[in-house]
Design a protein around this nucleic acid. Structure first.
Lengths: 115, 115
DNA sequence: GTAGGAGCTACCGTTGACGTCAGGTGCAAG
DNA sequence: CTTGCACCTGACGTCAACGGTAGCTCCTAC
């Protein structure tokens, strides 16, 4: 698969795919002409990246936990990182929930006082 | 209250307070010498900003909904914006939850295969 | 009246995940 | 064999919420 196909199928830009490679998240092979050649699972991997990006993980962290996904094993450091990230995400969810409540308050307070 | 007091009490930097003013979120008066003078409720307002920033609202949105908070009323546009933001936040929470589940999967999968 | 911490404006720097050229190459179709 | 879209490698631009610095002024304490 070439880069444009992966982009269309995964819903990200070509530029993003090159960026992921630059960050060590993807390592496509090259055609004799120098063009990137992606394996079939690249699309799923990209979707996985998007999901983690959406949760606020930076490229570095994603790169660090890719070995865990591929080998199904973890080192002590990786477990610590995973725990820390899970904790961070849980706290983020709490903050989002609190902010949502604040917006709800505003809506409710203004519900019977519309202009 | 001067800017340093507000900073200490609200836990943000002096630089951040000047930035909030630049964005139209705070409008302190000025002393004869040109120094910013903040009302007592400034600290609460700043904490409110922090809460919304944490939920991914940009300064523009916060500035747009400040009138709602201050007057207790909303226009149709403001209600639309509030609904959109609440929707966005709910979706964000879903994405965070999904990502958390993915990380949990990794942890569980590697739980009995530690290195 | 002076020392010096706190404030002031103005401006450049930072970080992350890309967007956006510019200028050149690969490759399948007709 | 040429058209022409897809791809390539740099390299600079973007956006948001500040951080940091320079050079100056204010204000309070002694």
């Amino acid at each position: 698969m070439r880069i444009g196909d992966v982009a269309r199928r995964s819903g990200v830009s070509v530029r993003a795919l090159r960026y992921y490679e630059e960050q060590g998240l993807l390592s496509p092979t090259r055609s004799p002409g120098g063009q990137r050649e992606y394996a079939e699972d690249a699309v799923d991997r990209v979707r996985f990246f998007q999901q983690l990006y959406a949760a606020g993980l930076p490229s570095r962290r994603i790169a660090e936990l890719l070995p865990c996904v591929d080998t199904g094993t973890t080192t002590a450091e990786q477990r610590a990182m995973l725990d820390a990230e899970r904790d961070r995400i849980r706290k983020q969810i709490d903050e989002y929930t609190a902010a949502l409540a604040r917006l709800d308050e505003i809506v409710v307070a203004a519900a019977d006082r519309r202009v």
